[in-house]
Amino acid sequence: MGVVIPLGENKNKQASVKPLVDLTSSGMDRVNQLILSKAGSDVQMIPEVANHLISSGGKRLRPMLTLASAAMFGYQGDSDVKLATSVEFMHTATLLHDDVVDESDLRRGKSTARIIWGNQASVLVGDFLLGQAFKMMVEVGSLDALDVLATAASVIAEGEVLQLSVAKNMETTEDDYLQVIRAKTAALFAAASEVGPIIANADRAGRNALKSYGMNLGLAFQLVDDVLDYGGKAADLGKNVGDDFREGKITLPVILAYRRGTQEERQFWRDAIEGGETDAAQLEKALGLISKYGSLGDTIQRALHYGTIARDALAPLPESAWKDALLEVIDFCVARIN
Rank of each mutant, 00 (worst) to 15 (best):
residue 162 L to F: 15
residue 164 L to H: 06
residue 165 S to M: 14
residue 166 V to Q: 12
residue 166 V to P: 02
residue 167 A to V: 00
residue 168 K to R: 15
residue 171 E to I: 03
residue 173 T to V: 10
residue 173 T to H: 09
residue 174 E to Y: 01
residue 176 D to Q: 14
residue 177 Y to C: 04
residue 179 Q to Y: 06
residue 180 V to E: 10
residue 182 R to D: 14
residue 185 T to Y: 05
residue 186 A to I: 05
residue 187 A to Q: 07
residue 188 L to A: 09
residue 188 L to F: 06
residue 188 L to M: 11
residue 189 F to I: 05
residue 189 F to G: 01
residue 190 A to H: 06
residue 190 A to V: 09
residue 191 A to C: 10
residue 191 A to W: 03
residue 192 A to T: 08
residue 192 A to K: 09
residue 192 A to M: 03
residue 193 S to T: 06
residue 193 S to I: 04
residue 194 E to R: 15
residue 194 E to S: 08
residue 196 G to V: 04
residue 196 G to A: 09
residue 197 P to I: 03
residue 198 I to S: 05
residue 199 I to M: 02
residue 200 A to I: 01
residue 200 A to M: 05
residue 201 N to R: 14
residue 201 N to H: 15
residue 202 A to K: 05
residue 203 D to M: 03
residue 205 A to I: 11
residue 206 G to R: 13
residue 210 L to M: 15
residue 210 L to K: 05
residue 212 S to W: 02
residue 212 S to Y: 05
residue 214 G to H: 04
residue 215 M to K: 06
residue 216 N to K: 07
residue 217 L to S: 01
residue 217 L to Q: 01
residue 217 L to T: 05
residue 219 L to M: 15
residue 220 A to G: 07
residue 221 F to L: 08
residue 221 F to V: 01
residue 223 L to F: 11
residue 224 V to Y: 12
residue 224 V to A: 12
residue 225 D to P: 04
residue 225 D to M: 06
residue 225 D to E: 10
residue 228 L to T: 06
residue 228 L to P: 00
residue 229 D to V: 12
residue 231 G to V: 11
residue 231 G to N: 14
residue 234 A to W: 01
residue 236 D to H: 06
residue 237 L to S: 04
residue 237 L to W: 02
residue 237 L to G: 02
residue 237 L to E: 03
residue 237 L to Y: 02
residue 238 G to N: 10
residue 239 K to Q: 12
residue 239 K to W: 12
residue 239 K to N: 11
residue 240 N to E: 15
residue 240 N to R: 11
residue 242 G to I: 10
residue 244 D to P: 03
residue 245 F to L: 11
residue 247 E to M: 03
residue 247 E to F: 02
residue 247 E to T: 00
residue 247 E to D: 12
residue 247 E to P: 03
residue 248 G to W: 02
residue 248 G to Q: 01
residue 250 I to C: 12
residue 250 I to M: 13
residue 251 T to W: 07
residue 252 L to H: 02
residue 255 I to N: 10
residue 257 A to F: 00
residue 257 A to V: 11
residue 259 R to S: 14
residue 259 R to I: 06
residue 260 R to W: 02
residue 262 T to V: 09
residue 262 T to S: 15
residue 263 Q to W: 00
residue 264 E to S: 14
residue 264 E to T: 14
residue 264 E to P: 00
residue 265 E to P: 07
residue 265 E to L: 10
residue 268 F to L: 15
residue 270 R to F: 06
residue 271 D to L: 09
residue 272 A to K: 06
residue 273 I to T: 07
residue 276 G to W: 04
residue 277 E to R: 13
residue 277 E to D: 11
residue 278 T to H: 01
residue 278 T to K: 03
residue 279 D to T: 04
residue 280 A to N: 10
residue 280 A to P: 00
residue 281 A to G: 13
residue 281 A to Q: 13
residue 281 A to E: 14
residue 282 Q to P: 00
residue 283 L to I: 04
